[in-house]
Amino acid sequence: MTKEILKFALLFVVLVLCQVVVFNHICLFGVAIPLVFIYFIVKLPVTLGVNWLMTLAFLLGLTIDIFSNTQGMNALACTVLSVCRQPVLRLYVPRQDDLSNPEPSIRTLGLAVFMKYVLTMSVLYCILFFAIEAFAFFNPLQLLLRIVFSTILTFIIILAFDGFVTPRR
């Protein structure tokens, strides 16, 4: 139990540092921004209560906000995303009691389901984040391009990151 908490605390710190030091400065073709820190919400165990899930997601978003001066944008999007996580998982994994390990990963869900799950979460987050951002300048074409390409970039980097941090059998 303590080991799990330490593991997720480390993951939180590593993801926040990666996001604010590296990924926040990436903007491919002026549209694609990787929002890799949602990997933390993706990886939290499914047995975790929804209150804890929301609290951790809110804190994650707030930390990113403080670093990138976005004032509440990521906090709001993360809170909403964390609430959407359970329905998304239920969509692909109808019976969660069958899972051998409560932590979603390629091994517990299978490659195809895990990829679908990560892609859905990335799409949801990019839609939420860029819709909130569009309160400042509303430009429909740019909004659409940003959502589509940021989703693709986020998805690819999260999969790569997952391959990097998951221990080999």
Binding site: Q71, G72, A75, L76, T79
Partner: peptide, 14 residues
């Protein structure tokens, strides 16, 4: 909890 966090982030946002 959900409403609390959403209100909190909206206060920051606006």
């Amino acid at each position: 909890v959900f409403v609390f966090y959403v209100v909190l982030s909206c206060i920051l946002l606006f």
